[in-house]
Amino acid sequence: MAEKIDFSKVRFLIVDPNPLALQMLNDILSMLGANYVRRATDYDKAMDVLKEGNIDILITEREITPKNGIELVDYIRHDPSSRDRLLPVIVLTARSEEPFVVEARDHGANEFVAKPYTVDSLYKRLSAVIAYPRSFVSAPGYFGPERRRKQLPFNGTERRGVDPNAPKG
């Protein structure tokens, strides 16, 4: 039997300054069955919601004000007051050129979806963060999901350890 995702159990925060983009994303999530979708049109409103907690997935545009979506990811991953440093983050942005993909990845975003997007491409990323969560890496200069997606044979010296005090899933 195939696995399904019950989106009524998932709490979303979606951030986009464009009302139509925000509404459309909200409608897609509603169609999926999500009934807890908080919306924000800028950084400050998103921060207010994040500080309240009770969010399972953040989907944010990069181009928000007064700070950008990547700074929102930085807050989640690094700020001592962050409620959930492991919060899954999907960057959904019209800034789709390679440097922005690399930037999002290196700041700890879980997934990147380039606008214009198809429902299929968005769903794949949603499905990935819910059904196949990735390990996190804490290293000097980086805290975020494992950036290596393919498990290839590695013949070198293993330099990464497992933190016995790290939060367990």
Partner: peptide
């Protein structure tokens, strides 16, 4: 460099064999 196991809380809550997409 530390590896932190992923949280499976969301998966446990949302993934099932009956309801949803």
């Amino acid at each position: 460099v530390q590896i932190i196991q992923p949280s499976t809380d969301l998966r446990k809550r949302a993934v099932n064999f009956k309801t949803g997409f």
